[in-house]
Amino acid sequence: MRKTVKILHSIAAGGLVGGLLAYAVLLLVAPQETPAAYADLRASIALLGNLVLLPSLAIALVSGLVAMVVHRPFIDMGWVWVKAALGILMFKGVLTVIGAKADYAAGVAARMATGEAPPDALADLLALEWGTLLAVGAIAIANYVLGIWRPKLMRPLPSDAAPRRAG
């Protein structure tokens, strides 16, 4: 069970980082010259968020928490708790900003393509999107580093050691 959870967690983490990289590549190199092309880009990003990023993140987060249950020593390790906290931050970032804003931007881009919205309707959103994408990417890399490096952030007391009193 432990190896299965670890493999699932690793695959999901790879899907998450790959999805974030694909998102950035789409923003950088996809055709955006016409409103229709931009609307297609936004639809692709929304699809990527819904089919790759959100499921990968959910699986990575849940499998990480399950790993703590099936391998009890993880509960006493500080790096595991830091990874859990960072995972929750990533989930919030992906879910609320990347996932929701990508869907919103796809709708606005479609309205831009039909002339219902001005051409600069997404300018502010794009800056926020890049900032969030970079922040979530940095958190994902930090989680990778913690999972490989496994620093001793907290040292638990042995269960049979009682605190000693001075004097």
Rank of each mutant, 00 (worst) to 15 (best):
A109D: 00
L134G: 01
E129W: 03
A162D: 06
M112S: 00
L61I: 05
L122E: 05
L20H: 04
G49S: 15
L53V: 02
A58P: 00
Q32G: 12
P119T: 12
R164A: 14
L53Y: 08
A166S: 13
L126D: 12
L146A: 07
A84K: 03
G19N: 07
A161G: 00
L51K: 12
K6T: 10
K152G: 06
P73Q: 09
R42S: 15
E33D: 14
K83W: 08
G115M: 09
V82P: 01
G93Q: 09
K101T: 10
G18V: 07
A113Q: 07
R42Q: 12
K6Y: 03
P73K: 07
V94C: 08
L20W: 04
V136I: 08
V66I: 15
A161T: 15
K83S: 08
D103H: 08
P118M: 02
G19E: 10
D124R: 14
A113F: 02
A13I: 13
V62I: 11
Y144K: 01
I98D: 05
A58K: 01
G167T: 04
S56A: 12
V97T: 12
A37D: 13
M154E: 04
G167Q: 13
M1L: 13
L86T: 08
D120E: 11
L41T: 08
A12E: 06
A113E: 02
I139T: 02
M68R: 10
V70D: 04
L51P: 00
G131M: 05
V5M: 15
L157T: 13
G19C: 11
R164S: 14
I11E: 03
I45S: 03
E33P: 00
L146Y: 05
S44P: 00
L41W: 07
P156T: 05
V145D: 09
R165S: 12
I98V: 15
G115Q: 10
L146D: 01
A60M: 15
P35E: 11
L146G: 11
L89I: 03
A127I: 13
I139V: 13
G78K: 03
E129C: 04
V94S: 03
E116I: 09
S56P: 08
G167M: 06
M1T: 13
K83R: 15
V66R: 07
L54V: 15
L86C: 04
L57A: 15
L8D: 04
G107Q: 09
A123E: 11
V52A: 14
G64W: 10
E116H: 13
V69R: 14
L146R: 09
S63F: 02
P156C: 03
A121I: 05
D120I: 03
R2S: 11
A127M: 05
A85F: 11
I11T: 01
A113Y: 01
G131I: 05
D76P: 00
